[in-house]
């Protein structure tokens, strides 16, 4: 038995090292897994980063949902940024468009990226954006301003208890970092 030990040992060590490497990989795999998890559960109110297609025929006029918009700029982002519509009442399934205004008051060109967040988080699962400025980066030249549309509808499957939800956009200055950063969220 003792002669076999070194062999046994190295085989077991290799297996255990494989577990270690696997778990190291799993740590990184948690990053995309977390996104999947968020998509399912609505943690942090992340919205879908890709444009949805509008395929709802039945508008549920028996219900009205109030959608509020909040705009914020992050530290170091000098743009003016506001929602032209602060709140809007929609029927589930109804397609609506709202406008956001941004202006770069500085003397330099800046690339902005808006990050959405919905509260309560579960509402994010039923918010479908067919068109949004947050899907892409927004470059604005010095002094330039822009009116940015956002088109969305609320899935009629939205739970009865959600009557109002808030969509916030935080605008970040991503000038210069845009090439190195993966834009995987809209």
């Amino acid at each position: 038995m003792s002669e076999q030990r070194p062999n046994n040992n190295s085989r077991l060590v290799i297996k255990l090292m494989a577990v270690v490497l696997g778990m190291f990989g799993f740590g990184f795999a948690l990053v995309p897994l977390y996104d999947v998890f968020c998509d399912i559960t609505g943690i942090n109110g992340k919205t879908n980063p890709y444009a949805a297609t509008y395929d709802v025929q039945d508008v549920d006029t028996s219900r009205t949902i109030m959608v509020e918009f909040i705009t914020r700029t992050n530290t170091g982002m000098p743009w003016e940024f506001e929602a032209r519509t602060k709140r809007i009442a929609v029927h589930p399934g109804e397609l609506k468009t709202v406008q956001f205004y941004a202006r770069n008051p500085t003397t330099r060109d800046i690339v902005g990226q808006a990050i959405p967040s919905v509260s309560p988080g579960t509402a994010a699962l039923y918010l479908n954006k067919t068109e949004c400025f947050c899907f892409n980066q927004q470059p604005l030249q010095a002094g330039q301003d822009v009116l940015m549309p956002m088109q969305f509808y609320v899935d009629p499957q939205i739970p009865e208890d959600i009557e109002v939800f808030t969509l916030s956009y935080t605008l970040y200055d991503v000038t210069g970092t845009s090439s190195t950063v993966a834009m995987n969220r809209g």
Binding site: N44, G45, I70, S119, T166, S168
Partner: peptide
């Protein structure tokens, strides 16, 4: 609606039993 401009904070009023983290870039309620 609770959020943050920089690091994570947490807004807490014991008398309301309200404690919510303020996460930069995200809103909580």
């Amino acid at each position: 609606l609770v959020t943050s401009d920089d690091v994570i904070h947490s807004w807490w009023v014991p008398d309301f039993a309200v404690k919510k983290d303020a996460n930069p870039g995200f809103i909580n309620e």
